[in-house]
């Protein structure tokens, strides 16, 4: 549990951070809360000559809302998200997910930007970002660009960021009326990653048929997964038992879980099917509370 030596920088301005990243290129690694990175370094699964700790960069830990977006700075900690009254009231799905991540110590340090960037298929925030159809603002020396949440993580522990880029902000479109969502996480034990988890967000027409659906999956594929077929299946439909059952089946067909000590792939599929039904029903229920 002793990492190889590295040089440590703690810039306080974004320009400085970007400068350091471009100077050291592939040899540099961004650190935010360090809750995923430090274990990797300590186990020597990874080592980097330069660690750029951006947690002191000003202005990136805010949660704000305007007419169009809920905007969350990449350095906002998971506990700030879990504790935010605004998020609790209007983005219940995110509130639920944040509160179920790891334990309070890790939530106090871990950041939303790190949780998404790490690319761990078992991290919980990416599925929520997918379900909420979030836009991710990326910053580099050349400027800013937007990446859609579902295309951000490209494979296990890999993302679209180019060398020198930082995930800057997470923008979640303000949900229309008649929307509701939830995050259901099946864990082995407290503080653990999930056996399987699902994020569902539904918006309804006035007649209660589904206007739009967002479904993100955790721990059931090599990367956080968008259940796009199930989203399409639900759109335009009225929610009833058989629709929910069918949608859950489609969700399962879009997963690709592996066998490990959390259980076999069949078991995970079974769990996913059950929580998918539960999550769609609950989201619908929440969307219809007017």
């Amino acid at each position: 549990m002793h990492p190889s030596s590295f040089e440590y920088f703690a810039p306080t301005k974004m320009e400085e951070a970007l400068e350091l990243l471009s100077k050291y290129g592939e040899d540099a690694k961004i650190m935010s809360g360090g809750q995923s990175l430090i274990p990797l370094l300590k186990l020597r699964i990874a080592s980097f000559p330069y660690v750029i700790d951006i947690s002191g960069v000003q202005g990136l830990n805010r949660i704000t809302e305007n007419k169009e977006f809920l905007e969350i700075g990449a350095l906002t900690t998971i506990s700030s998200i879990a504790d935010s009254e605004l998020i609790k009231k209007r983005y219940q799905i995110l509130h639920e997910a944040a509160g179920q991540i790891a334990d309070p110590l890790i939530r106090n340090r871990g950041t939303i930007g790190g949780n998404i960037s790490h690319g761990d298929p078992s991290n919980d925030i990416p599925a929520v970002a997918i379900a909420l159809k979030a836009n991710l603002e990326v910053i580099g020396k050349e400027g800013k660009r937007i990446v859609e949440a579902h295309s951000f993580v490209t494979d296990s522990f890999t993302n679209v960021l180019k060398v020198g880029e930082i995930l800057n902000k997470i923008r979640i479109p303000v949900a229309p009326d008649n929307s509701g969502g939830c995050y259901i996480k099946q864990k082995k034990s407290a503080g653990d990653f999930s056996v399987a988890a699902i994020a569902v967000q539904l918006s309804l027409h006035d007649n209660d048929s589904v206007k739009s659906a967002g479904i993100g999956l955790t721990s059931v594929a090599p990367k956080p997964t968008r259940a796009m077929k199930a989203e399409r299946f639900l759109e335009g439909k009225k929610i009833n038992d058989s629709v929910v059952r069918e949608a859950a089946k489609i969700v399962v067909s879009e997963s690709d879980p592996s066998t490990d000590f959390y259980g076999s792939s069949e078991f995970k599929r079974k769990v996913l099917g059950k929580i998918a039904e539960e999550a769609i029903n609950l989201s619908f229920e929440r969307a219809t509370v007017r």
Binding site: K188, S189, A190, G191, D192, D260, F261
Partner: peptide
């Protein structure tokens, strides 16, 4: 439990994977 794969690699290589009981249990 300590779980090994077919190659004899230990899969439960961290304390949370090896599954100690927690207060909530």
């Amino acid at each position: 439990g300590l779980f090994y794969n077919k190659e004899g690699q230990l899969i439960t290589s961290s304390i949370s994977d090896a599954g100690v009981p927690l207060a909530e249990d």
